Simulated assay, not measured.
Amino acid sequence: MRAIITVIGKDMVGILAKVSTICAEYDVNVVEVTQSILQDLFAMIMMVDISKASIPFSELADRLTTVGQEMGLTIHTMHEDIFNSMHHV
């Protein structure tokens, strides 16, 4: 199973490191990352494999949201099933 993590906010040192460290802490494998810095704004989309995660998906999402708030960022985590449901006719 996979999930998508999006991060948006003011650019600063360590955003990618912080998010990927949390993923590693809970055995979530980062599969793909794309990021852009538009002037002083940071935007990142990260695809992760959550099939071997050591915590439930909801707890991972809550942890990332909390860290985002602490850093002044918006971090949203969406399960792959949401995408599949949205695009299934």
Rank of each mutant, 00 (worst) to 15 (best):
Leu73Asn: 00
His76Tyr: 07
Asp40Pro: 04
Ala61Cys: 13
Val48His: 04
Met46Glu: 00
Met86Ile: 10
Glu32Arg: 11
Thr77Gln: 00
Ile15Pro: 00
Ala3Glu: 04
Leu60Pro: 06
Ile50Lys: 04
Lys52Ser: 10
Gln39Gly: 14
Ile45Arg: 01
Asn29Ala: 07
Phe42Tyr: 06
Thr65Asp: 08
Ile75Phe: 10
Ile75Arg: 01
Gln35Asp: 03
Val30Pro: 04
Phe83Leu: 10
Ser51Lys: 09
Ile82Ala: 12
Ala3Leu: 11
Leu60Ala: 10
Cys23Asp: 01
Gln69His: 11
Ile4Phe: 08
His88Ser: 13
Cys23Gln: 06
Gln35Cys: 05
Thr74Lys: 08
Glu32Ser: 01
Ile50Cys: 04
Glu70Met: 07
Thr65Tyr: 06
Gly68Asp: 00
Asp40Lys: 06
Gln39Leu: 08
Leu64Gly: 07
Asn84Gly: 09
Gly14Pro: 05
Phe57Ile: 05
Ile15Cys: 03
Ser58Asp: 03
Tyr26Leu: 08
Gly9Ile: 12
Ala17Arg: 15
Val7Ile: 15
Val30Ala: 07
Leu41Ile: 12
Glu59Gln: 10
His76Phe: 10
Asp81Val: 15
Val7Lys: 01
Leu64Glu: 00
His88Ile: 11
Val31Pro: 01
Met12Lys: 15
Ala61Ile: 10
Met71Trp: 06
Ala61Gly: 15
Asp27Arg: 13
Val19Cys: 02
Ile37Phe: 00
Ile5Cys: 08
Val67Gly: 02
Lys18Trp: 02
Ser85Lys: 13
Phe42Ile: 04
Asn84Trp: 11
Gly14Met: 14
Met46Leu: 11
Val19Asp: 01
Ala17Ser: 14
Ala17Asn: 14
Val30Leu: 13
Ala61Asn: 12
Gly68Thr: 01
Met44Tyr: 10
Ser54Thr: 14
Ile5Val: 14
Met1Leu: 11
Val67Lys: 11
Met78Pro: 02
Ile55Ala: 03
Val48Leu: 05
Glu70Asp: 12
Thr21Asp: 11
Gln39Met: 07
Thr21Met: 13
Ile8Lys: 00
His88Asn: 09
Met47Cys: 09
Asp11Asn: 13
Leu64Cys: 02
Phe57Ala: 04
Phe57Ser: 01
Ile4Asp: 01
Phe57Asp: 02
Thr77Asp: 07
Met1Asp: 15
Ile5Thr: 01
Val48Arg: 00
Ile75Gly: 11
Ala53His: 02
Leu64Ser: 10
Glu59Asn: 09
Ser20Ile: 14
Met1Asn: 15
Met47Ala: 05
Arg2Gly: 13
Arg63Phe: 03
Ala24Lys: 12
Val31Asn: 08
Met71Phe: 05
Ile37Trp: 00
Tyr26Ile: 03
His87Asp: 02
Thr34Asn: 14
Gly68Pro: 01
Thr34Met: 14
Glu80Gln: 14
Val13Glu: 13
Gln69Gly: 15
Val31Asp: 01
Ile50Ala: 08
Met47Asp: 02
Ala43Met: 09
Ile5Arg: 02
Ala53Asn: 09
Ile8Tyr: 10
Glu70Lys: 07
Met78Ala: 05
Met44Lys: 04
Phe57His: 00
Ile5Met: 04
Ser85Gly: 12
Ser85Glu: 12
Ala24Val: 12
Val31Met: 06
Leu64Trp: 00
Gly9Lys: 03
Leu38Asn: 09
Ala17Val: 13
Asn84Gln: 07
Cys23Val: 12
Lys18Tyr: 00
Pro56Ser: 03
Lys52Asn: 13
Val33Thr: 10
Ile15Ser: 01
